[in-house]
Amino acid sequence: MTIEQEGTLEVNGHSLYTKSWLPDGPTKAKVLFIHGFSDHINRYNHFFEQLVARGIAVYGLDQRGWGRSVRKPGERGLTGPTMQVLADMAAFITPHLEDKSATALPVFVMGHSMGGGQVLTLACDPAYQDSVVKHVRGWLLESPFISFSPEETPSALKVMAGRLAGRLLPRHQLKHEIMVEHLTRDPAVRESIAADELMHNTGTLQGLAGLLDRTAALASGTVRPLGGGAMKALWIGHGTLDKTTWFEASKRYFDECTGEVKDREFRVYEGWYHQLHADGPDSEEFYKDVGDWILKRAEEEKTESKL
C-alpha cells in the first residue's frame, strides 16, 4: 500500500507544490525526484508506486513554473535563471540530508529529461559539493537533457535570437510544443498527455535560455562531476529511439566520467522512446532496474554503517 501526502515547500517567498509516496511498512531508501519540461510530479504515479512496493520512499515537487506550483497563467514557465533552479532543488533536497543518525535512510536524487540535466548540473556545481552532493548516496538520470536529439535541435540562428530576446524580455512567454508521439510508444499515455491541462508547453525566454545554457555546458563537457569521489554513484538510462533528448550525448557524457565517478552504470533501452517510466508494458523492466540499483546501494550503506 502507498501512502500519499501533499504539501508545499516555501523558497524565497514562493510556494512549490510537493508530494510524497511512502511505504506502509519498513523503508529502505529515499528518492527525491525532479520532473521534466512541461511536466508535473503526478504523471509519475505508477512508477513511484512500483518503487514504494519495494520499500523505497519517493518525494517530488512541481518545479517553479510547472504543474500545481503555477497559481496563475503569468507564472507558467517562470522558472527563473539557472541559479534559482538550482537553489530550488537544493532547498528541496537538503532537509532530507539533515538526519545524521545511525538509522538515517540513504538519499538518492533522480531527474527525468530537463530534470535530469538540472540534477546533473547541481551535482557538478562546486557551490553545492559540501552541502548536498557529498551526502547523496546516488544520482539517477532518466533520458537526461544533455543534448537535443537531431530531430529537435534548433537552428543556431534561433538559439542566438532566443538568448538575445531573453536578456531584453526575460518574462516573455513562449510556447514550445513537444510532439507526444516522440515521448512514448504507449497510445494511452499519448492521449493522457494531450488531455493534461497542467502540461502547458509554455516557457519564458529567460527559462528557455537557461535551459539552453545548461545543455550546452553539459554537452561540451564544461560541466562535469568533480573529482575526489564527491559524486558517489551515477546511473543513466536512455532509450535508443528517444527523439526528444539524445541517447548518444548521454552515452558520451557517461563515458567521459570515468575518472570522477567510480560506481556508475549506463543502461541501454534498445528501441525505447523518451519516457522510460511510461513507455508501455516494457516499463516494468525500467522500474526493476531503478529499484535494484537503489536497493543494492542502500544495503551497502547499511552494511558500511555497522562496521
Rank of each mutant, 00 (worst) to 15 (best):
G65E: 02
Q129P: 05
W139F: 15
T2F: 04
G65W: 04
V107M: 01
D62M: 01
L208C: 13
Q129D: 12
T303A: 13
G237S: 10
I146N: 05
A188K: 12
T245G: 05
G259E: 14
F145P: 02
S20R: 01
S143Q: 03
T204R: 05
G203W: 09
D99R: 06
I178D: 09
E265N: 15
R267K: 15
A165G: 10
L211E: 02
D242E: 02
L157G: 12
E197W: 11
A216P: 09
F92V: 01
T303W: 11
T222I: 14
T215P: 00
D186A: 11
W272S: 08
A249V: 06
K28A: 08
L295F: 01
V159L: 07
L86S: 03
G60S: 11
Y273V: 05
R190G: 14
T153A: 11
M114Y: 05
I56S: 08
E285Y: 09
R297M: 07
P144E: 04
H35P: 09
I146P: 03
L208V: 14
L22C: 06
A194G: 11
R267Q: 12
Q5F: 05
Q173I: 04
G7S: 02
S15F: 02
K251R: 15
P95D: 04
Y273C: 10
L211Q: 00
R264L: 12
L9Y: 00
S149G: 10
S143R: 06
E98N: 07
V107R: 03
S147W: 09
M199L: 15
P26M: 08
W235V: 13
P170S: 13
T18D: 00
S220V: 06
E151Q: 13
H277Y: 07
P170Y: 10
L141Y: 06
M114E: 03
I3R: 10
L241V: 14
Q275M: 13
A102T: 06
F266D: 11
F247V: 02
Y128E: 04
W66C: 11
A219E: 05
R214M: 14
A90M: 03
G210M: 08
G116N: 02
E75G: 01
N45W: 11
N12H: 09
I193V: 15
L174Y: 08
F266M: 12
K243H: 15
H14C: 08
A102L: 10
Q275L: 12
A230T: 08
E152W: 08
V52S: 06
Y128K: 08
G138Y: 05
G227K: 14
D88F: 03
F148Q: 09
W21G: 00
E177L: 14
E299R: 12
M1C: 06
K19W: 06
L226F: 12
N201V: 13
P73R: 01
L198V: 10
H277M: 07
A194Q: 13
E300T: 10
E256A: 13
W235I: 10
W246A: 13
L141W: 02
T240D: 11
H200D: 07
G65V: 04
R267S: 15
I146C: 08
D196A: 15
Q173P: 02
L61F: 05
K302P: 07
K302N: 09
D125K: 01
G239R: 01
L22D: 03
L120E: 00
L157Q: 15
S147F: 09
R264F: 08
T82W: 00
R224L: 10
S149C: 14
E197A: 15
L51K: 02
A29P: 00
C257T: 15
G77L: 02
E265T: 13
Q5I: 07
G221T: 08
Y44F: 10
